[in-house]
Design a protein around this nucleic acid. Structure first.
Lengths: 191, 191
DNA sequence: CCACCTTATGCAACTAGTTGCATAAGAGAG
DNA sequence: CTCTCTTATGCAACTAGTTGCATAAGGTGG
């Protein structure tokens, strides 16, 4: 139930068209709230119908024409309401941890390669975050809005650092396991 | 697409009924792959229809009667296949980070209290994980299966530690912000 | 013996997110 | 002028997860 609020935030930061929003979701906002262009268009339609946003009057678009939206006062109020309301954290789902647990039962064959691949992906993401930090938060950037946005980026950086290190730890553990097939290789079991 | 595999893993660890599975998902497995009882019953039905699990022959149940399942060889094979197959990490969604970013635009009013509440929740979860670690992984527990399961638990412990510390950091940052209403309090804007 | 509580299973409807594809305008190549 | 590529918007169908409620057996207290 947060995609509309993600869009409101993005539009308050800068009025945009659906495709522009999609691009921004692929970059900054999508790092902690991803969305596809179809989700975004559908949600823009709903938000407009509810009177929380409107099409920028300058543009009178037809299909295939850019159509930029801006947030109306009711939209800002709704975002403020949502931001301050108490919310329970959603339980996270992590397929890799599940696979590790499954591997304890059916064997670790083939898993190490994917652990290494994930490690690379997290490292690449980390490098991207660091680049954003260098670019957007040079020393002296410390207005209240900057501080909050930097705080969010720090969470991303620290999380990727965490996963990179944890995967290193996992790979080290794998190296110590008896054999490539793991505790019970599926082949050995199926005979 | 991982719930069936979570269930297969749980059933391989120990054949169980739907409700028993639900309880185990509330404890260990649910810490990284949560599921409600309705999801579990529905999925058990599907897995049985696909021939990956079967009802334990000892029990011939009617409605309201316990009905325990065990994994068939085809189920084990499918789990092994899924575990070893390469999978891309799903982008994570975190509402709290989104709220912080929204707060940079509409103001921080009311947010600090929920940050504190979340900190408490993460700390409580951390204590629970540590208790599980103490109970299930005493020194000397180091068979290959134990190592893998411990690795997964460590991820949980370290993640909760991470969030607790990050929230402390966020609260410290909040304390330094100009005022309770934040950079642009909604009230000030709406006038 | 029946009202109520707990354990246990399950259906139906809804919400959110994903995937695949369709439509349309404009720009450039031949 | 028309074919194709890019930009842009959007619908429809599907998959996954959530919420609300129904059903049924067995035990307990009055």
């Amino acid at each position: 139930m947060s995609l509309p609020h993600a869009i409101l935030t993005a539009l308050l930061e800068k009025p945009s068209s659906g495709l522009e929003l999609t691009r921004r979701f692929d970059r900054s906002i999508g790092y902690f709230w991803s969305a596809t262009h179809q989700q975004i268009y559908r949600e823009l339609g709903r938000l407009e119908a509810e009177g929380l946003i409107r099409v920028l009057p300058s543009e009178q678009p037809a299909r295939g024409q850019k159509k930029a939206y801006e947030v109306l006062p009711a939209g800002r109020a709704e975002l403020a309401r949502w931001t301050s309301a108490s919310q329970d954290p959603k339980p996270h789902r992590d397929a890799m941890l599940l696979r590790l647990r499954a591997a304890a039962v059916v064997g670790t064959a083939g898993l190490a390669a994917d652990l290494r691949r994930h490690r690379e992906l997290h490292e690449r993401q980390l490098a991207e975050y660091r680049e954003i930090e260098r670019r957007d938060f040079p020393p002296g950037t410390d207005g209240p809005e900057d501080r909050l946005r930097h705080l969010v980026l720090r969470a991303g950086i620290d999380l990727e650092t965490f996963w990179t290190q944890w995967l290193d730890h996992a790979l080290a553990e794998f190296a110590r396991l008896p054999d490539a097939g793991g505790p019970e290789s599926p082949a050995a079991r199926k005979a």
